[in-house]
């Protein structure tokens, strides 16, 4: 008998050879068969291919949201063609950072949601708005975290509420939600938020900011992120959703393959030390 406190009662390895999990430990048989691992049943414990920050801001009569197109595998830039802004319904954008496979799963359930709500329930209506999408996603995220099987993402939902006011709200892998006039995920919360809050110091101040101002700060933020976030990319997508106050209609603008402009690298020639050949 094996007297090791943890394996107490099992046949000793010296006499009987390695313990055969197929015989006794029925509950974990499947897993032990697969990889002969001692790990318990495992759900996602870390993201694999990841997308970095999503940044967003309200302005007077609309909302702007941006995310680059990189999919990283650790520190490797594995993909540069990942679209992380998802359009849901006619006036909502969901921006996702974090695990890309989970992103694709979320994309699929949002597709199903849209079909269910707008086609089946409404016969081609147009009622699915940002607060509905956010509430639904936050239920999904919180339920997954409660089953200890999270979707490894931070999500920003941007659009309009039922009173046609700009709507911006966040939800992440823990199911934590909040709203603000400027929201950024990941590195963006450190690098972009200071710039964005400089434009919109208080939540209510977004009404004093026009689209051009918001767009400029978003562009600046994307540049700063490209400079300093090693997992960011030069090419990004951004979407603008605005309420045309004359027609009362909501306009949707989705721009892909935008480049980070006005990059300044003159400082680079002055860098000294490490691998630099300059002295």
């Amino acid at each position: 008998m094996n007297h090791d406190p943890y394996y107490w009662g099992r046949p000793s390895d010296e006499v009987y050879g390695q313990y055969n999990y197929n015989i006794a430990n029925a509950k974990n048989v499947e897993q032990h068969n697969q990889n002969n691992s001692n790990f318990p049943k495992m759900n996602t414990q870390q993201p694999i291919i990841t997308g970095t920050s999503v940044i967003s801001s309200k302005f007077k009569n609309g909302i702007i949201i941006a995310a680059d197109n990189v999919g990283s595998y650790g520190s490797l830039m594995r993909f540069n063609n990942i679209e992380r802004l998802i359009k849901v319904g006619s006036q909502t954008i969901v921006g996702i950072s974090g695990d890309i496979s989970d992103l694709q799963y979320i994309q699929r359930i949002l597709d199903e949601l849209e079909i269910q709500q707008e086609v089946y329930d409404n016969d081609g209506g147009d009622f699915l708005i940002a607060p509905n999408v956010h509430e639904y996603l936050s239920r999904v995220m919180y339920n997954r975290r409660s089953n200890m099987n999270p979707l490894w993402n931070s999500i920003i939902v941007a659009g309009f509420d039922s009173e046609k006011k700009p709507f911006l709200r966040y939800v992440d892998l823990l199911g934590v939600t909040y709203h603000a006039s400027t929201i950024a995920t990941g590195f963006g919360s450190h690098l972009a938020i200071p710039l964005l809050r400089n434009l919109i110091p208080e939540n209510k101040d977004y009404i004093n900011v026009n689209e051009e101002q918001a767009k400029k700060v978003i562009e600046d933020s994307m540049r700063v992120l490209f400079y300093r976030d090693a997992r960011s990319g030069e090419v990004y997508s951004y979407a603008v959703i605005r309420l045309n106050e004359e027609t009362g209609k909501i306009e949707f603008e989705f721009n892909k393959k935008t480049k980070v402009e006005d990059q300044k690298w003159r400082f680079a020639k002055d860098i000294r030390g490490y691998g630099s050949t300059q002295h």
């Binding site: 709500q117 329930d121 009622f127 607060p131 509905n132 956010h134 509430e135 639904y136 239920r139 039922s162």
Partner: peptide, 12 residues
């Protein structure tokens, strides 16, 4: 109301 933060449509 809980899942979508909106009142159910009468038709639905």
């Amino acid at each position: 109301k809980l899942i979508f933060d909106k009142q159910i449509q009468t038709y639905k």
